[in-house]
């Protein structure tokens, strides 16, 4: 399969995502440029972390108007796999490709920490290599990762299994303290109704090598590889 990783002005983890895919996972991955419309024949498009356009207006609010976002919206409408990590998640919400929004962390400060995630739905293209309830250690690093959605919408999403990842304590139980950014219902990652667009605040590309603290992030990339087969 082929991966495309978008670079917006201000993207930061684009190079890390390419490195994780190519050098660590041995994947075929190409960089995509925000001013282009071509998706380079990618089977899965990744919107990486960072501060696109400095996030000066609102996270992801300007990036959604990039030329490449038009192609990504069409690609998603055609059932293509799209994953947004951190700022990429924010952009997908701004572009209404995912429900909900991301607002400032409860602490009002940036948080960089390795957190524990619980896989809430393993029957998706992004988690199918995992068991339901599997626990992953993956870092977060963001200032605006508090997930919000209207109560009824979030309830419907939960029922449909769109809440894919949740912040939990290291023993797998839900806890206020483990929900570092204060997300509603401790939501860490969600999919759209068709389950082909996925956004998450944690950074799987920063959890693929033992030397750098763990490999749980590979599970997401492995799931996508399986799905694309």
């Amino acid at each position: 399969m082929k991966w495309g990783v978008v670079t917006f002005p201000g993207s930061l983890d684009d190079r890390d995502t390419l490195y994780a895919l190519r050098d660590v996972m041995g994947q075929d991955a190409v960089p995509l440029w925000h001013k282009d419309e071509a998706l380079g024949g990618a089977d899965c498009v990744v919107l990486p972390g960072g501060f696109s356009y400095g996030d000066y207006l609102r996270c992801g609010a300007i990036a959604r108007f990039s030329p490449i976002m038009k192609s990504i919206a069409r690609f998603a409408a055609d059932g293509g796999l799209v994953m947004g990590i951190c700022n990429g998640f924010q952009i997908l919400c701004e572009a209404h490709l995912l429900p909900g929004a991301l607002t400032r962390n409860r602490s009002l400060s940036f948080i960089c920490e390795r957190v524990t995630l619980r896989v809430e739905n393993s029957n998706t293209p992004f988690t199918r290599a995992a068991r339901a309830g599997e626990l992953w250690r993956i870092p977060i690093k963001h200032g605006e990762g508090l997930y919000v959605a209207p109560d009824d919408e979030l309830r419907n999403m939960e029922e449909r299994g769109q809440v894919i990842l949740r912040y939990v304590a290291s023993d797998g139980r839900e806890s206020e303290a483990a929900n570092l950014n204060g997300s509603t219902r401790a939501v860490a990652g969600v999919a759209n109704e068709r389950f082909n667009v996925f956004g998450l605040m944690p950074h799987p590309e920063h959890a693929v090598e033992p030397m750098l603290g763990g490999v749980d992030g590979r599970r997401i990339f492995e799931s996508i590889i399986e799905s694309a087969r």
Binding site: L12, D16, E205, L212
Partner: peptide, 27 residues
Amino acid sequence: IFRQYDSIVQSNTVLGPGSDAAVLRIK
């Protein structure tokens, strides 16, 4: 203090803040 800093971007941080010295690998 240091949790407010991104200490892992660029995927080189082997030992990060809170250690006597930071260690970065050279890819």
